[in-house]
């Protein structure tokens, strides 16, 4: 009788702990869902207010797989004014290497002709390397998406290609 009572007590405690864990997981999921929704609302609101589509310019950065260039940092200028500087962590380089694209800059520009310049700092075979690329583009109404890409140079793998294009 006593043994059975102990078994029941142990089972009871076990199920209470399992239930508590399930309850925590459920509450955590609900909270996470709300965090996601609120962040999404905020992102939309910021876009609507700060960079509406009629003036929006977005610059992405991508690195081709297998490029013999380790990106250290990028300086981005729009019309000869620094728009952003970005220093890369190992984790970010890994994410780029695995096909990820970074939204490097989102800003607003009026319609007309503009110039984008990017300076890439990094290493090739443990030697420091710095190279710039630029692009003149026309901003019309609607968003303009631009992509900076570090590409493999088949003719000379030690001299990667730094390209900017509209996407």
């Amino acid at each position: 009788m006593f043994q059975r009572a102990v078994v029941l007590l142990v089972c009871g405690l076990f199920s209470v702990s399992v239930l508590a864990e399930a309850d925590l997981a459920q509450r955590a999921e609900t909270l996470k869902k709300r965090v996601i929704e609120l962040n999404r609302d905020l992102l939309k609101l910021e876009e609507q207010t700060l960079t509406p589509v009629d003036t929006q310019v977005v610059v992405f950065l991508a690195v081709d797989n297998g490029v013999s260039f380790t990106l250290d940092s990028v300086e981005l200028s729009l019309n000869e004014e620094i728009a952003t500087r970005y220093l890369y962590s190992e984790q970010e380089l890994g994410a780029l290497d695995r096909g990820g694209i970074q939204r490097l800059y989102t800003g607003a520009l009026p319609e007309g002709s503009h110039q984008l310049m990017a300076v890439f700092n990094g290493k090739v075979d443990n030697r420091y390397f710095r190279k710039a690329a630029s692009l003149k583009f026309a901003k019309t109404s609607g968003a303009r998406y631009l992509e900076l890409r570090v590409k493999r140079n088949p003719a000379n793998p030690r001299q990667p290609i730094f390209a900017i294009r509209e996407i």
Partner: peptide, 25 residues
């Protein structure tokens, strides 16, 4: 499809940085 690919690659950048919340945003 191009829009979804861009979205996919951008989300992938956050995913591989273990930013799963941002990926879902």
């Amino acid at each position: 499809e191009e829009q979804d690919k861009l979205l996919h690659d951008e989300a992938l950048f956050h995913f591989h940085r273990s930013e799963y919340m941002r990926t879902l945003v």
